[in-house]
């Protein structure tokens, strides 16, 4: 089996805001069709990284190629190839479901048959067929989330960025949402998702645990658990540690390193 081509390549990416380093020398690759999770607490640097990859923020140093395009050199080129959805589910509340779809479709230059086809796709995916003329502000969290995802996918982007996509959404909607993500990945879409929910991280092919702007651990969740089990023998050798154990271990060790580093 030949290895899947690389969709996102990040090398030594750094972003500073004045004296504060939000993202500190981060490197990773994401393969095509992979669901890659960014796990970390608030302020760890997840959103800053994703916003640099979308061309919303300029990197201070380092390099990032998204879909084969350098984000520093051609942020607009990147924007045409990606879909982006943030935790704010950026819909226009005073517009109806259908008007939101048509608006984003128009911005991506969709018209005629293609617009009709993608509009149907978005409505079906969001489960909003028959509710096209409802004002989007009257939709509850789960519907809004799926409609926002539908709008972000109208132009069929090969790479999808999701920044805390399940904030304020009920558990059932979250589960449905992740089924959609799996379907997209099956169809070849590369997904980079940030989250601070451990159960969501479990559903990713690989995760990067990010802490203090640095990647503290990276790999498939099963491998991360096995690594921890190998290093620190568990009470019951047949049961792997949980991802929560891994996260706490990684973050604690990263904090110790930082403290001893600054003391030196």
């Amino acid at each position: 089996m030949t290895p899947a081509p690389i969709a996102i390549r990040v090398e030594h990416l750094t972003r500073r805001f004045g004296a504060f380093t939000a993202v500190d020398d981060v490197s990773f690759d994401v393969k095509r069709g992979e669901v890659f999770g960014f796990l970390g607490s608030n302020g760890a640097g997840k959103s800053t990284t994703i916003r640099m990859l979308c061309g919303l923020l300029r990197p201070t140093s380092g390099q990032a190629d998204v879909g084969g395009i350098d984000v520093s050199l051609d942020p607009e080129g990147v924007k045409r190839r990606i879909g982006y959805m943030s935790q704010r589910f950026s819909l226009y509340e005073l517009l109806t479901v259908d008007q939101n779809i048509r608006f984003y479709g128009g911005l991506y230059g969709l018209s005629g048959d293609r617009l009709a086809r993608r509009r149907r796709f978005a409505l079906e995916m969001a489960g909003l067929v028959g509710r096209e003329d409802v004002l989007s502000r009257t939709l509850s969290g789960g519907w809004r989330q799926r409609l926002a995802l539908g709008c972000a996918l109208l132009h069929e982007p090969p790479i999808l960025f999701l920044d805390e996509p399940t904030g304020g959404v009920d558990p059932v909607s979250r589960r449905d949402f992740w089924r959609l993500i799996d379907d997209l990945a099956q169809a070849g879409t590369t997904v980079l998702v940030t989250t601070h929910y451990l159960d969501e991280a479990e559903r990713c092919d690989r995760v990067a645990i990010i802490h203090g702007g640095r990647i503290a651990a990276m790999g498939p969740t099963r491998e991360l658990k096995q690594a921890l089990a190998a290093r620190e023998p568990q009470d019951d050798p047949d049961v792997l540690p949980t991802l929560e154990d891994v996260f706490i271990d990684v973050v604690t060790r990263a904090a110790t390193v930082t403290t001893s580093g600054s003391a030196a």
Binding site: L56, S90, L107
Partner: peptide, 14 residues
């Protein structure tokens, strides 16, 4: 304020 400006900024809208 609504957060839609960021969404506009990831579209090809110049």
């Amino acid at each position: 304020e609504l957060g839609t400006l960021e969404q506009l900024h990831v579209t090809p809208l110049g």
